[in-house]
Amino acid sequence: MSNSHLFLTAGFPKAPLNNGVGRYIGQLQRVVIKFCKSHGSSKGVREFIESNLIDFSRANPGVAVYVKPRRHRGPSITAEFCNGETGYIDVKCMSRDEVYKWLNHFTTQSGKKVMRYRKLWHTESPSIQGVWSPHTFRDPALNLAKFPLENHAGPIIHQPSATELLIEMFKKQQLERSGESDGETKE
């Protein structure tokens, strides 16, 4: 028996049905809001239904909204997505704004299961200018080289650059000058 279902799945970012390549399609299909007409834990949901539900439905014409009162049960929101997955949230004792927030959260989701992303980037065309290799941008004469190469063997000894030489000369000059001035003061 495998334990793979116990652990968090990991993968790469993917959008269902190439969403967004041509146009964006909302992935939320259906929302069922369950609540109680009398219990206090459903107060926020009731307020939401009274004041915001119509606005929400108008703003999301692609989402079918079902409201289901049930006696003496805790309130909940169930969402169904295009890919057949469902989302569920217990909205017990939540305020009107919180209910609205979580409902809007469902509209922006794609419905895929929670996944740890290995990379926050996905591409179908990984290289446009060609994949880099150690031979890229190297002198083609090296293709015909016979080894060992005299110039390339051994460590690279960095010679001082012109700037460094200049700085050194300048410092030397300053030292000499300061020596002169010291001599003058002594005299």
């Binding site: 970012p13 993917k14 959008a15 190439n18 390549v21 964006y24 909302g26 509209t107 922006t108 992303y117 926050l120 980037w121 996905h122 591409t123 179908e124 065309s125 446009i128």
Partner: peptide, 21 residues
């Protein structure tokens, strides 16, 4: 920073105001 080409997907982490669509 992201290296992108058309049809790529990138994910931006943290609070970011733009919404779906």
């Amino acid at each position: 920073q992201f290296k992108i080409t058309p049809e790529d997907i990138i994910i931006i982490e943290g609070y970011w105001p733009p919404t779906n669509g």
